[in-house]
Design a protein around this nucleic acid. Structure first.
Lengths: 217, 217
DNA sequence: AAACAAACAGTCAAGCCTGTCTGTAAATGG
DNA sequence: CCATTTACAGACAGGCTTGACTGTTTGTTT
């Protein structure tokens, strides 16, 4: 009689899929996209080949699910990091370093692998493109909010975009070796320049809340 | 005696290797790194498998040679594009667009594939890292020269680096679809900001030659 | 011109990867 | 408590890739 439902099926499925997706992301970072074979994933996840194929019938299904999983991780990572930002005077530099760190983290590396692979894999592209676009838009929105940028000012929007493309480029540079020191120097300088550019003719800048900086030496 | 050297061996070797390397680079762009199999390369190059293995005994040898080949192409491409730059007043924007175009071109795409693959392939990394570093330094030098930047001024060097990392990021964004319009807008704004930042306190700026801009509205 | 070396051609085996297939255990529903 | 469905296990075949290997042609050297 005791032998009724020990572990409900929903729970089992969730755990199994989670383990597989985590292993997939880990392997993307460790071995790259082409090195992430389904056999390796099942081994790494401690899941039998049969079970894996049950939950994800094809490699594409697995990878697409991994893309979605990764997108969620990236989103929550960013929000968490944003919430932990100090409110002090060096707000801009803190925001930039937070972004720079994110785009140099393993999650970005995994995303980069998928990104590059998707370029020559139509099926993957179909899954990656919309999600990446979403992440891009959200990151933009978040950055605008964190920096208190008035996007109605001409050029402001482009400067935010440039900032994000810059950290993407820095993230790319970071994949071939630790680039932290260089990144810090560059972002510190960019923070000064960006502030100057955005404060140039403040018009109705809502950032009245934010303390204005006349930092320049 | 007339039947001496019809086609000298050196010539044949050079032509054969060139065909193989070109095919390799083409396939990197078309199919990505993992899609670039040695069989495909030999087919594409119109070279027998035996001949291929004669010139490049292993895939690694082929790819490493392709990296070097690509590095040369990138170098000469950049120099050629630099030489073709107009001398007019919008020098900065022209330089930035030239860089942006280069980092959005097929050669960059091929380099990106190698770059990403090298991250998880020690043998490849050994070949890619030093060459990429060289290209990076040369690009930096070229940019400094084209923009007439005085690197002795604090922050100037970092702004140039930021510019290059930005175009790298823009190049990355361009791989998932044509991004030309957005890139132009961003670079136009970046040019304004960069000029303002570099001209801020001109000290002994040698760019006395370059016309000064008080563009800001 | 003869011997030698380099260039070129194509076949073959070993290994890996993916996805199919058959079989077993566990859980839910009546 | 039995039937049905879902979860899990592992063997297997087909395809592709790499590099080794044998044989043929072409250029070089003396």
């Amino acid at each position: 009689m005791s032998a009724t439902a020990r572990v409900p099926q929903g729970e089992r499925t969730r755990a199994m899929r989670a383990r597989l997706l985590e292993a997939t992301v880990d392997l993307l970072v460790e071995k790259g996209f082409s090195g992430t074979s389904t056999t390796l994933v099942s081994e790494r996840a401690g899941v039998s080949r049969g079970a894996q194929l049950h939950h994800f019938p094809t490699k594409n299904a697995l990878v697409v699910a991994a893309v979605e999983h990764l997108t969620e991780i990236r989103g929550s990572d960013l929000e968490r990091a944003a919430a932990a930002l100090p409110d002090g005077e060096d707000r801009t530099v803190a925001v930039l370093e937070m972004l720079g760190d994110h785009f140099s983290s393993p999650v970005f590396t995994a995303a980069l692998e998928l990104w590059v692979a998707a370029r020559t894999d139509p099926a993957l592209l179909e899954a990656v493109a919309p999600l990446e676009q979403r992440v891009g838009r959200e990151t933009h929105r978040l950055t605008v909010e964190l920096l208190g940028v008035d996007e109605s000012r001409p050029g402001a929007r482009e400067l935010v975009q440039a900032t994000l493309d810059l950290v993407r480029g820095l993230g790319l540079a970071n994949t071939l070796g630790d680039d932290t020191r260089r990144r810090r120097r560059i972002l510190a300088q960019w923070a000064v320049t960006l502030d100057a550019a955005l404060d140039a003719a403040p018009a109705t800048k809502k950032a009245a809340a934010t303390k204005k900086k006349e930092t320049t030496s």
